[in-house]
Design a protein around this nucleic acid. Sequence first.
DNA 1: ATCCCGAGGG
DNA 2: CCCTCTGGAT
Length: 210
Amino acid sequence: MKREAIREFFRRLHDADPEPKTELEYASPYQLLVAVVLSAQATDRSVNLATRKLFAAAPTPEAMVSLGEDGVAGHIRTIGLFRNKARNTVALSRLLLERHGGEVPAGREALEALPGVGRKTANVVLNTIFRQPVMAVDTHIFRLANRTGLAPGKDVVAVENALLRRVPKEYLLDAHHWLILHGRYVCTAHKPKCGECCVRDLCLYRDKTA
DNA sequence: ATCCCGAGGG
DNA sequence: CCCTCTGGAT
């Protein structure tokens, strides 16, 4: 996609949703971190159903450690990969208390040192909580970047770097959420809704059937 | 490359 | 039945 087309692409997403934000429910940086860890290979809707119960029982890292793996698992059983996620949630909470006074660290290295936190989760926290201009490339953004021709790449790191190079600076801070939301509701994996897409004319794909 | 792993949609 | 959902660790 050409430079001016990319600018127009984000201009339209901005007009449609001037202040995009995550649909994950959370009441603190700690809760956002946990919610993102739980969101791997799961829908936001199912994560929110689980975290409502989980955060009511354990709103802080101290309470999460007390609740324990089995206790956490009991609240998140309806999410896929729940055993790994329960283990990581407790271990991560323990590490936050030991190394960071129970606070969420603002650096990539410290975040990725936490169990269950990889590059994508760290980028979500850095962007959403600390408002840093980074790109968390998840399943939606990877698909959309390649399908539209916005920022093609073989793997997620290649797409991340392509986006950082190509997204205009003034849109970079919110680009993550615009792309996620567009991928979730319009540019879906199966049968994308090209008929109701505001950037269809800029897209490489342009579904023939819609 | 493989495993983890429930719910919802088609 | 199949695929997908804001991945990470081994």
